[in-house]
Design a protein around this nucleic acid. Structure first.
Lengths: 115, 115
DNA sequence: CAGCTGTATCGTTTATTGACGGTCAACGGA
DNA sequence: TCCGTTGACCGTCAATAAACGATACAGCTG
Protein backbone atom coordinates (compact mmCIF):
# COMPACT_ATOMS: atom_id res chain seq x y z
CA UNK A 1 0.00 0.00 0.00
CA UNK A 2 1.10 3.54 -0.48
CA UNK A 3 2.35 4.97 2.75
CA UNK A 4 -0.12 7.80 2.70
CA UNK A 5 2.14 10.27 0.99
CA UNK A 6 0.57 13.58 0.19
CA UNK A 7 -0.11 14.95 -3.25
CA UNK A 8 3.01 15.53 -5.26
CA UNK A 9 3.38 19.17 -6.18
CA UNK A 10 1.73 22.33 -4.94
CA UNK A 11 2.42 25.52 -6.85
CA UNK A 12 5.10 27.95 -5.75
CA UNK A 13 4.97 31.68 -5.96
CA UNK A 14 7.23 32.45 -8.91
CA UNK A 15 7.29 36.23 -8.67
CA UNK A 16 9.42 36.48 -5.58
CA UNK A 17 12.94 37.79 -5.72
CA UNK A 18 15.40 35.40 -4.10
CA UNK A 19 15.84 37.45 -0.96
CA UNK A 20 12.15 37.51 -0.28
CA UNK A 21 11.81 33.87 -1.07
CA UNK A 22 14.54 32.89 1.33
CA UNK A 23 13.18 35.21 3.97
CA UNK A 24 9.75 33.66 3.57
CA UNK A 25 11.02 30.15 4.07
CA UNK A 26 13.26 31.17 6.91
CA UNK A 27 10.45 32.98 8.56
CA UNK A 28 8.33 29.84 8.49
CA UNK A 29 11.18 27.96 10.11
CA UNK A 30 11.71 30.74 12.60
CA UNK A 31 9.73 29.28 15.45
CA UNK A 32 10.84 26.31 17.54
CA UNK A 33 7.39 24.77 17.56
CA UNK A 34 7.32 24.77 13.79
CA UNK A 35 10.72 23.20 13.55
CA UNK A 36 9.58 20.60 15.96
CA UNK A 37 6.44 19.88 14.02
CA UNK A 38 8.42 19.61 10.86
CA UNK A 39 10.91 17.24 12.36
CA UNK A 40 8.11 15.14 13.73
CA UNK A 41 6.52 14.92 10.30
CA UNK A 42 9.83 14.02 8.73
CA UNK A 43 10.38 11.23 11.19
CA UNK A 44 7.03 9.69 10.51
CA UNK A 45 6.70 10.19 6.79
CA UNK A 46 3.09 11.16 7.33
CA UNK A 47 0.65 11.58 10.10
CA UNK A 48 -2.67 13.11 10.90
CA UNK A 49 -3.00 16.34 12.72
CA UNK A 50 -4.12 14.89 16.01
CA UNK A 51 -0.83 13.08 16.43
CA UNK A 52 1.00 16.35 16.07
CA UNK A 53 -1.16 18.02 18.65
CA UNK A 54 -0.41 15.21 21.06
CA UNK A 55 3.27 15.58 20.42
CA UNK A 56 3.48 19.33 20.89
CA UNK A 57 2.64 20.93 24.22
CA UNK A 58 0.40 23.56 22.74
CA UNK A 59 -3.30 23.97 22.29
CA UNK A 60 -4.88 22.36 19.28
CA UNK A 61 -5.74 25.71 17.78
CA UNK A 62 -2.18 26.93 18.16
CA UNK A 63 -0.78 23.87 16.47
CA UNK A 64 -3.28 24.35 13.69
CA UNK A 65 -2.03 27.88 13.23
CA UNK A 66 1.55 26.73 13.01
CA UNK A 67 0.52 24.12 10.48
CA UNK A 68 -1.10 26.83 8.48
CA UNK A 69 2.10 28.85 8.44
CA UNK A 70 4.04 25.82 7.34
CA UNK A 71 1.45 25.07 4.69
CA UNK A 72 1.52 28.59 3.34
CA UNK A 73 5.28 28.43 3.07
CA UNK A 74 4.91 25.16 1.21
CA UNK A 75 6.95 23.21 3.73
CA UNK A 76 4.07 20.97 4.56
CA UNK A 77 1.05 19.63 2.79
CA UNK A 78 -2.11 18.38 4.27
CA UNK A 79 -4.89 16.52 2.66
CA UNK A 80 -8.19 15.51 4.01
CA UNK A 81 -8.60 11.80 4.48
CA UNK A 82 -12.06 11.22 5.72
CA UNK A 83 -12.20 12.41 9.24
CA UNK A 84 -8.51 13.13 9.54
CA UNK A 85 -6.15 15.46 7.80
CA UNK A 86 -2.95 13.80 6.71
CA UNK A 87 0.10 16.01 6.87
CA UNK A 88 3.40 15.46 5.15
CA UNK A 89 6.57 17.47 5.07
CA UNK A 90 7.64 18.54 1.62
CA UNK A 91 11.17 17.30 1.41
CA UNK A 92 11.74 18.87 -1.94
CA UNK A 93 10.89 22.26 -0.58
CA UNK A 94 13.12 21.70 2.37
CA UNK A 95 15.97 20.78 0.10
CA UNK A 96 15.39 23.96 -1.73
CA UNK A 97 15.80 25.99 1.41
CA UNK A 98 19.07 24.28 2.16
CA UNK A 99 20.17 25.03 -1.36
CA UNK A 100 19.21 28.66 -1.04
CA UNK A 101 21.20 28.99 2.13
CA UNK A 102 24.17 27.15 0.76
CA UNK A 103 24.08 29.24 -2.38
CA UNK A 104 24.82 32.26 -0.23
CA UNK A 105 28.27 30.94 0.53
CA UNK A 106 29.84 29.49 -2.58
CA UNK A 107 32.60 27.34 -1.26
CA UNK A 108 34.36 23.99 -1.43
CA UNK A 109 31.21 21.88 -1.23
CA UNK A 110 29.33 24.05 -3.69
CA UNK A 111 31.42 24.15 -6.89
CA UNK A 112 29.89 27.26 -8.40
CA UNK A 113 26.57 28.70 -9.47
CA UNK A 114 27.98 28.54 -13.00
CA UNK A 115 25.89 29.33 -16.06
CA UNK B 1 47.56 44.24 3.80
CA UNK B 2 44.96 42.01 5.27
CA UNK B 3 41.65 42.43 3.49
CA UNK B 4 39.95 43.60 6.64
CA UNK B 5 38.52 40.30 7.63
CA UNK B 6 36.78 40.25 10.97
CA UNK B 7 37.92 38.38 14.01
CA UNK B 8 37.86 34.63 13.63
CA UNK B 9 35.50 33.07 16.14
CA UNK B 10 32.74 34.42 18.32
CA UNK B 11 31.19 32.11 20.88
CA UNK B 12 28.02 30.19 20.20
CA UNK B 13 25.30 29.41 22.65
CA UNK B 14 25.85 25.72 23.36
CA UNK B 15 22.83 25.01 25.51
CA UNK B 16 20.24 25.23 22.77
CA UNK B 17 18.40 22.20 21.59
CA UNK B 18 18.63 21.77 17.83
CA UNK B 19 15.11 22.94 17.16
CA UNK B 20 15.63 26.16 18.98
CA UNK B 21 18.96 26.69 17.38
CA UNK B 22 17.59 26.26 13.90
CA UNK B 23 14.64 28.44 14.70
CA UNK B 24 16.96 31.12 15.96
CA UNK B 25 19.03 31.15 12.83
CA UNK B 26 16.00 30.96 10.61
CA UNK B 27 14.40 33.77 12.46
CA UNK B 28 17.42 35.97 11.83
CA UNK B 29 17.17 35.15 8.15
CA UNK B 30 13.44 35.70 8.18
CA UNK B 31 13.39 39.24 6.93
CA UNK B 32 14.16 40.29 3.36
CA UNK B 33 16.23 43.26 4.45
CA UNK B 34 18.45 41.01 6.50
CA UNK B 35 18.92 38.57 3.68
CA UNK B 36 19.80 41.47 1.48
CA UNK B 37 22.30 42.84 3.96
CA UNK B 38 23.85 39.43 4.32
CA UNK B 39 24.14 38.95 0.60
CA UNK B 40 25.69 42.36 0.26
CA UNK B 41 28.27 41.51 2.88
CA UNK B 42 29.02 38.20 1.23
CA UNK B 43 29.57 39.87 -2.10
CA UNK B 44 32.05 42.30 -0.71
CA UNK B 45 33.94 40.18 1.78
CA UNK B 46 33.81 43.07 4.22
CA UNK B 47 32.51 46.55 4.41
CA UNK B 48 31.74 49.27 6.85
CA UNK B 49 28.29 49.98 8.06
CA UNK B 50 27.75 53.14 6.07
CA UNK B 51 28.02 51.25 2.82
CA UNK B 52 25.25 48.96 3.93
CA UNK B 53 23.03 51.85 4.83
CA UNK B 54 23.59 53.33 1.40
CA UNK B 55 22.72 50.05 -0.19
CA UNK B 56 19.51 49.42 1.70
CA UNK B 57 16.56 51.78 1.39
CA UNK B 58 15.98 52.04 5.11
CA UNK B 59 16.91 54.51 7.79
CA UNK B 60 20.31 54.18 9.39
CA UNK B 61 18.81 53.24 12.71
CA UNK B 62 16.74 50.51 11.12
CA UNK B 63 19.71 49.03 9.34
CA UNK B 64 21.60 49.14 12.60
CA UNK B 65 18.81 47.18 14.24
CA UNK B 66 18.91 44.56 11.53
CA UNK B 67 22.66 44.33 11.92
CA UNK B 68 22.16 43.77 15.58
CA UNK B 69 19.81 40.89 14.93
CA UNK B 70 22.29 39.37 12.53
CA UNK B 71 25.08 39.91 15.02
CA UNK B 72 23.16 38.28 17.83
CA UNK B 73 22.47 35.28 15.66
CA UNK B 74 26.16 35.10 14.90
CA UNK B 75 25.64 35.48 11.18
CA UNK B 76 27.63 38.65 11.06
CA UNK B 77 30.49 40.13 12.97
CA UNK B 78 31.41 43.75 13.27
CA UNK B 79 34.52 45.27 14.65
CA UNK B 80 35.38 48.84 15.24
CA UNK B 81 38.09 50.22 13.03
CA UNK B 82 38.66 53.77 14.06
CA UNK B 83 35.69 55.73 12.94
CA UNK B 84 34.04 52.91 11.05
CA UNK B 85 32.67 49.57 12.00
CA UNK B 86 33.74 46.80 9.71
CA UNK B 87 31.13 44.12 9.16
CA UNK B 88 31.70 40.64 7.82
CA UNK B 89 29.37 37.76 7.19
CA UNK B 90 30.27 34.62 9.06
CA UNK B 91 30.43 32.03 6.32
CA UNK B 92 31.03 29.23 8.75
CA UNK B 93 27.86 30.01 10.58
CA UNK B 94 25.96 30.24 7.35
CA UNK B 95 27.24 26.86 6.33
CA UNK B 96 26.03 25.55 9.59
CA UNK B 97 22.53 26.74 8.90
CA UNK B 98 22.55 25.04 5.54
CA UNK B 99 23.74 21.90 7.23
CA UNK B 100 21.03 22.08 9.84
CA UNK B 101 18.39 22.42 7.19
CA UNK B 102 19.83 19.67 5.06
CA UNK B 103 20.10 17.41 8.05
CA UNK B 104 16.33 17.55 8.30
CA UNK B 105 15.97 15.64 5.07
CA UNK B 106 18.46 12.83 4.90
CA UNK B 107 18.57 11.97 1.27
CA UNK B 108 20.76 11.17 -1.73
CA UNK B 109 23.12 14.09 -1.21
CA UNK B 110 23.31 13.54 2.51
CA UNK B 111 24.53 9.95 3.03
CA UNK B 112 23.26 9.39 6.54
CA UNK B 113 23.63 10.62 10.07
CA UNK B 114 25.02 7.16 10.78
CA UNK B 115 26.43 6.17 14.12
C1' DC C 1 -31.21 12.34 11.31
C1' DA C 2 -28.56 13.15 15.57
C1' DG C 3 -24.54 13.11 17.71
C1' DC C 4 -19.60 12.61 17.98
C1' DT C 5 -14.95 13.61 16.40
C1' DG C 6 -11.17 15.77 14.28
C1' DT C 7 -9.67 20.35 12.36
C1' DA C 8 -9.97 24.89 10.91
C1' DT C 9 -11.18 29.47 11.90
C1' DC C 10 -12.56 33.52 14.79
C1' DG C 11 -11.91 36.91 18.33
C1' DT C 12 -9.25 38.39 22.00
C1' DT C 13 -5.14 39.31 24.62
C1' DT C 14 -0.40 39.93 25.15
C1' DA C 15 4.33 39.92 23.32
C1' DT C 16 7.39 40.72 19.68
C1' DT C 17 8.97 43.01 15.55
C1' DG C 18 9.84 46.71 12.17
C1' DA C 19 10.54 51.32 11.20
C1' DC C 20 11.57 55.84 12.48
C1' DG C 21 13.64 60.19 14.47
C1' DG C 22 16.43 61.76 18.05
C1' DT C 23 20.32 61.44 20.77
C1' DC C 24 24.82 60.01 22.55
C1' DA C 25 29.58 58.20 22.79
C1' DA C 26 33.79 57.53 20.28
C1' DC C 27 36.97 58.97 17.22
C1' DG C 28 39.78 61.94 13.86
C1' DG C 29 40.94 66.13 11.90
C1' DA C 30 41.31 71.18 11.95
C1' DT D 1 40.05 71.87 22.01
C1' DC D 2 36.09 72.03 19.13
C1' DC D 3 33.63 70.11 15.48
C1' DG D 4 32.01 66.87 12.14
C1' DT D 5 31.21 62.08 11.24
C1' DT D 6 30.04 57.35 12.24
C1' DG D 7 27.18 54.12 14.13
C1' DA D 8 24.80 52.22 18.35
C1' DC D 9 21.06 52.84 21.29
C1' DC D 10 16.49 54.67 23.17
C1' DG D 11 11.57 55.68 23.01
C1' DT D 12 7.57 55.53 20.34
C1' DC D 13 4.16 53.93 17.30
C1' DA D 14 1.94 50.68 14.28
C1' DA D 15 1.78 46.16 12.62
C1' DT D 16 2.34 41.39 13.11
C1' DA D 17 2.77 37.11 15.62
C1' DA D 18 1.75 33.75 19.29
C1' DA D 19 -1.29 31.62 22.27
C1' DC D 20 -5.73 30.46 23.89
C1' DG D 21 -10.77 29.26 24.35
C1' DA D 22 -14.89 29.16 21.83
C1' DT D 23 -17.12 28.08 17.92
C1' DA D 24 -18.12 26.40 13.34
C1' DC D 25 -17.84 22.82 10.11
C1' DA D 26 -17.25 18.44 7.69
C1' DG D 27 -17.64 13.79 7.69
C1' DC D 28 -18.35 9.29 10.15
C1' DT D 29 -21.38 6.33 12.92
C1' DG D 30 -25.15 4.81 15.30
Amino acid sequence: MTPRTCSPAPPLDPALDPDEELARFASALGHPARVRILRFLLEREECFAGAIVEHIPLAQSTVSQHLKVLREAGLVRGEVDGLHVCYCADRVRLRKIGDLVNALTPGPTEPAPAS
